[in-house]
């Protein structure tokens, strides 16, 4: 039986989860639209379907905790607090973007939010997260590093090197695997000898657990518990959140390697309508309240697109800036 939502968080918080998931989905779907119009170019990896992981996990962390991720990170940046319009402007390649239009979809970054980057080399963020955790301990700061990555990253050398290192040096790193079961078109069991990813940490004696990544409350509770455990002990911890991306790997991928039946099975577990239903059933919100939230998100994303469209391109001189300080 499901735990009643009000026993987990106050109403205001519960509604915020819905708003964050909704704006994440809305933002991504508008990105797809803007990509087909040619306003967004390059690689575009959308997060639709995985919202419960980012929203639940971010809520379980402290504001001072570092977050690092891979290249499917728009929602993670926005949920952490990045302005949607500055993220959209970045995707448009405009000077007003969160990284001045130099990073693009895969390289969002905002140190004022302790959002320490989207990295586009699979597994590149692992050692950087370990280094940030070391700096926190070295400077006696009360914060941990949360490192998000996909199932495809767990066969990179940096995964194993970093798990070993984090445990060896006893560093406060929370590893969060977003297992959406496909590394581009290769299903987990075709790339990993041990497809149950959370079990792979036993070689490094790091405690781990598996959580339903389509359930925002399950992710929230697991990450909140894990983050406090990491904070108190100073040791690493590992969470595998099983989830699904409703779109292809990127906009260039029609995802023909997945069956319609599989897709439908996961669509039925879509975190947004299911969470909305629970909010209504448990008397936390009415349909009207949720619709007002949805309208607010749509307005924010509309404004983000308008802001991006109207923003200036970077000056040519920008290419020579920020290479060195």
């Amino acid at each position: 039986m499901e735990v009643r939502l009000r026993t987990i968080a106050p109403d205001q918080e519960l509604l915020k989860f819905y708003e964050q998931m909704y704006i994440s989905r809305e933002f991504e779907e508008r990105c797809a639209e803007q990509y087909t119009k040619g306003h967004i170019t390059g690689f575009l990896h959308l997060y639709s379907g995985q919202e419960a992981v980012s929203v639940g996990a971010t809520a379980g962390l402290h504001r001072d905790d570092y977050i690092l991720s891979a290249y499917r990170e728009h929602a993670q940046a926005i949920v952490r607090g990045a302005e949607p319009r500055r993220v959209m402007a970045e995707l448009f390649g405009k000077a007003t973007g969160i990284c001045k239009g130099k990073g693009g979809s895969m390289h969002l970054f905002d140190p004022s939010l302790n959002f320490m980057g989207g990295y586009a080399i699979v597994g590149g963020q692992f050692p950087i997260a370990v280094g940030l955790a070391f700096s926190a301990r070295y400077r006696s700061e009360d914060r941990i590093a949360a490192c998000f990555f996909g199932d495809g990253a767990v066969n990179q050398g940096t995964f194993h090197e970093s798990l070993n290192w984090a445990q060896l040096w006893q560093l406060p790193v929370l590893f969060i695997c977003e297992n959406n079961f496909y590394g581009i078109g290769t299903e987990v069991h075709r790339s990993s000898a041990l497809a149950s990813i959370h079990k792979r940490t036993c070689g490094y004696d790091i405690p781990s657990e598996k959580v339903d990544g389509m359930d925002v409350m399950a992710v929230y509770r697991a990450v909140k518990y894990a983050a406090e455990k990491v904070r108190e002990s100073g040791h690493p911890y590992f969470i595998e959140a099983t989830t699904y991306r409703f779109r292809g790997h990127s906009m260039a991928d029609p995802a023909k390697y997945r069956s319609a039946a599989e897709h439908e099975m996961w669509k039925a577990r879509d975190p947004l309508p299911n969470y909305a239903r629970r909010l209504i059933e448990e008397g936390i919100a009415t349909r009207e309240v949720l619709e007002a939230i949805e309208a607010r998100c749509q307005t924010t994303v509309d404004e983000a697109v308008k802001f991006a469209e109207e923003s200036p391109w970077p000056d040519d001189s920008a290419v020579w800036e920020d290479i060195y300080v």
Binding site: C99, G101, K102, G103, F109, P111, G117, D322
Partner: peptide
């Protein structure tokens, strides 16, 4: 430094 727009 460059790809994050000089923010670090």
């Amino acid at each position: 430094c460059f790809m994050f727009g000089g923010q670090t």
